[in-house]
Amino acid sequence: MAYTFKLLPVFSAALIALASPVLARDITHELGTTDVPDDPKRIVVLEFSYIDALASVGVAPVGLADDGKRDRVIAPYIDVIGDDWVSVGTRKTPSLEIIASLQPDLIIADKTRHTAAYDTLSEIAPTIVLDSLGGDYHASVAQMAAIGTAIGKSVEMEARITAHKATMAEYVAQIKPKAEGIAAQFGVTNAKGLWLHSPRSYNGSLLEMFGFDSNMETADGAVYEKVYVPTTLEQLSEIDPDLLLVGAYADPSFVDGWAGETLYENLTSVKADQVLPVTAHNWSRLRGMLAAEMTAADVVRIMDALE
């Protein structure tokens, strides 16, 4: 008996050693730490950037939030993840019933949108929560690594991130000389208004990485409200970027309605004919590595055209 007790620490040590691979699968995220299965097979993602992450390592989700419009998942993603996934509804209020019916073994949710549903989501499956909507580009790449670990593909993900960084470095090398001294600004517009993406935002941080200046006051703290800033024509004329990239969700857009107004016509970007359209969906809703590479390619094209 005494002998057994002496062996107990040895047994425990052996148990801990055996258990450690599982411990390594404890994923720390925005809302705590979640024990994620070793090799999740049925993954549900509730933001577009998480599709980017899965597609980066060739993993297809069983369900995703596409806002009820399947074409919001763009062709380059479909090429990798296929078309067998189920729509779980909007990113804002995804259908918990559909998610449950898919019997997922991992759910990836967004901090801004899904914190209120975290407990309920966790009842369905292990859930990790990342800050996709409020984070910048660098945070988005860091999230890719976190997702790689969560889905048991950290090695593949690290390789993809390394390749992505090399690709981006090439783009930066192409853009930077031409971006020197130019204040660039991205914004989205619908029928009701214009929202500028501040230097704290995903797109803002990308433009900064490409070597552009920003005339927007840098907001302190990455508070969601300060990442996307509703902007009037007067405010825009104060910021007055040299290059204004506009993603329009409506035709005619709110910005189109400014044509002919003195304040608008006197904008540096308008006078220089440098108000240029970009695809609103790709720029504004998508975040991630493939998304960033598409944005970079857009910027290369734009800078080439400007020359």
């Binding site: 909507l133 969601y224 509703p230």
Partner: peptide, 24 residues
């Protein structure tokens, strides 16, 4: 809503429209 309005509607706005989504 005007000064801190967001382009993408966030969680408090779901609550403002009155919803039983994710209630348990």
């Amino acid at each position: 809503m005007v000064t801190a309005s967001t382009f993408e509607i966030s969680a408090p706005l779901v609550w403002l429209t009155g919803s039983l989504w994710a209630r348990g």
